[in-house]
């Protein structure tokens, strides 16, 4: 199974482990490929090549309110979260409910690397080379019962190692949800790693959701429960402020957050003089548009 979605990158675009800490080496590698012609040139013709962010960038600028509201809080405060052993409960409208160890859960999944754009609702973005498997495969294994319409997700709550939970800055556990067809879309990934390494705690170890056409807060981290339901589940930010954060929260340059424009974004890693770039509809993944046919996306934002 899996490999149902392919991006315009090939295995040769994946940065070798020895150089991914060094941006210049990444650039040099890409230039070399382009000079060699062939695949890289073809990819570039379809889409401007994406340069993945460095692991340092991806692991030092995060939102993970369980560990604090500052961008550097997750990296600073998440070190004590133990992610092995880890269990995930799958329940609700499935044929095979249960609580599974992470190993059992992912043992027969097809792992792949997906280089995705990641767009935060705060108007910044990154490019992340995820390792993971399609959520659809996991749902198939769980046996989704007819009548189920949505998937709900829940993050671990560990007050003793999560200062943000102790401060109750928002309601915990953090929860999110997708419509079943969104969850089954081949783009929707369950990630367990970045750059071929296990996820860092601040990135949502040991297993998280990645929905690249939605704002980052939909991609819930450190998942302990997946529930199939027949109603739209509660989603944390939507619950905090429905006017500012819709249930769908698809990346959409034309629907502004009430307090800031979503028309443009800044790529992390460009330094002090990085300029803004235009935000793309569905974060540049137009293949999901058919999921929302007939919907007014300025109403169901």
């Amino acid at each position: 199974m899996a490999h149902r979605w392919t991006n315009t990158y090939t295995a040769s675009d994946v940065t070798p482990k020895g150089v991914w800490l060094n941006r210049r080496a990444v650039l040099a590698g890409m230039t070399g490929l382009a000079a060699a012609g062939g695949l890289a040139g073809q990819a570039a013709a379809q889409q401007a090549p994406l340069e993945p962010n460095t692991l340092e960038e991806i692991t030092s600028y995060n939102n993970f309110y369980e560990f604090g509201t500052g961008k550097d809080d997750p990296a600073k405060n998440s070190g004590d979260m133990v992610t092995d052993p880890w269990e995930v409960t799958i329940d609700g409208m499935v044929d095979n409910p249960g609580t599974f160890s992470l190993q059992d859960l992912i043992s027969d999944m097809t792992m792949e690397e997906r280089i995705y754009r990641f767009r935060c609702v705060e108007a910044w973005s990154m490019v992340v080379p995820w390792n993971g498997f399609e959520l659809a495969d996991l749902l198939e294994k769980a046996g989704v019962q007819s009548g189920a319409t949505h998937v709900a997700f829940e993050t671990a709550v560990m007050p003793e190692v999560m200062p943000g939970v102790r401060n109750r800055v928002i309601d915990f556990p953090y929860v999110e949800g997708l419509r079943l067809d969104e969850a089954m879309h081949p783009l929707t990934l369950m990630a367990t790693g970045i750059y071929g390494e296990p996820l860092a705690n601040q990135n949502g170890a040991p297993i998280r959701l990645v929905v690249p056409w939605k704002y980052g807060f939909k991609s819930i981290k450190s998942i302990v429960r997946i529930t199939l339901t027949d109603e739209q589940p509660k989603a944390t930010w939507n619950d905090i402020n429905a006017r500012e954060y819709g249930f769908y929260s698809n990346v959409n340059p034309e629907v502004d957050h009430p307090r800031w424009s979503q028309a443009s974004e800044r790529m992390i890693g460009g330094g002090l003089f990085a300029s803004r770039q235009d935000t793309l509809m569905f974060n540049g993944y137009p293949e999901v548009a058919s999921l929302y046919e007939g919907m007014d996306l300025s109403v169901d934002f």
């Binding site: 340092e56 030092s60 600028y61 961008k71 800044r266 992390i268 890693g269 330094g271 002090l272």
Partner: peptide
């Protein structure tokens, strides 16, 4: 502060930090 932001002293998103 400008120097610090330009030389990595304010993290990977120096514009917002500054």
């Amino acid at each position: 502060l400008f120097y610090s932001a330009a030389t990595g002293g304010m993290g990977v998103e120096p514009i917002n930090a500054l």
